[in-house]
C-alpha cells in the first residue's frame, strides 16, 4: 500500500531535514521509498515543497494532483497552495504560524482569509501553532520535528525507528529537545 506524503514550507523552516527523516524511517521499516525536495532558489523566504512516496515498489518520487494522503504544512498559506495535490479526505497537518509574502507585507494583498475553510472542505485537519509550541519547549526550530510527530500518528512505523533516525539527523546538542518535540507531536499533548 503506497503512502503519498506532501510537505510544504517557506525556505528556512527545516523541510529538507523532515523529508530526509521520513525517507530514512521508511527504509528502516523495510519499505521502498523515494522523495523530492523542490527548493528552487530559496535559501530563505520562498515557497518550497517536498514529497515522500513510500510502499512496496515505488517508481516516481512525484505525486500527481489529488493523490496526496498526508500534507505536512509548516506554514498556513503554503498549506493552501498544496490543496490541489490532496485526495479528498486527506490528513492535513497545519501549522497555524503565518509568514507574510512580500505582496502581503507591502499591503498589496490580504493574507489569504479562506485557508481554514478550504482545508476543512478537503480533509481531516489537525491544527497547531507548532512554532509557538516549539518555542515554548525550547526552540522554534524544532517545529518541523514536532509536526513529524503529529504525522507519525498516521504512518504505521514504530516509535523506536523514528527516535533512532531523528537522533542521527539532528545536531547532537539538540537531540533531547527534538525527541521531546516528536513525542509531544505524536501524543498530541502540546
Amino acid at each position: 500500500m503506497t503512502k503519498n506524503i506532501l510537505l510544504a514550507a517557506v525556505g528556512g523552516q527545516g523541510l529538507v531535514l523532515a523529508t530526509g527523516i521520513l525517507a530514512e524511517v521508511a527504509l528502516r521499516a523495510g519499505l521502498d521509498v523515494k522523495t523530492n525536495d523542490v527548493i528552487g532558489l530559496s535559501q530563505r523566504g520562498g515557497k518550497i515543497m517536498g514529497s515522500v512516496v513510500m510502499g512496496d515498489k515505488i517508481h516516481s518520487p512525484n505525486i500527481a494532483p489529488q493523490q496526496g494522503d498526508i500534507l505536512i504544512a509548516f506554514e498556513a498559506l503554503e498549506a493552501k497552495r498544496m490543496l490541489p495535490y490532496l485526495k479528498d479526505g486527506a490528513i492535513i497537518i497545519k501549522n497555524d504560524y503565518e509568514m507574510a509574502p512580500s505582496l502581503v507585507q507591502q499591503e498589496k494583498r490580504e493574507y489569504d482569509p479562506d485557508i481554514d475553510s478550504l482545508l476543512d472542505g478537503k480533509g481531516e485537519v489537525i491544527r497547531l501553532d507548532a512554532t509557538a509550541i516549539a518555542k515554548r519547549i525550547g526552540h522554534p526550530a524544532v517545529a518541523n520535528i514536532l509536526m513529524l510527530g503529529v504525522a507519525a500518528r498516521y504512518i504505521e512505523i514504530e516509535d523506536e525507528i523514528w527516535h533512532q533516525v531523528i537522533q542521527e539527523h539532528v545536531p547532537p546538542k539538540s537531540i533531547e529537545l527534538n525527541l521531546e518535540a516528536f513525542d509531544l507531536g505524536k501524543a498530541g499533548t502540546y
Binding site: 523566504g45 489529488q66 497552495r81 495535490y85
Partner: peptide, 18 residues
C-alpha cells in the same frame, strides 16, 4: 487515471533577502 493540476488562486510567494 490522474487529474490535471487545477491550482487554487493563492498569494504568490517570491523569495526575498533574508
Amino acid at each position: 487515471k490522474y487529474a490535471q493540476l487545477r491550482p487554487i488562486e493563492t498569494t504568490p510567494r517570491a523569495p526575498l533577502f533574508c
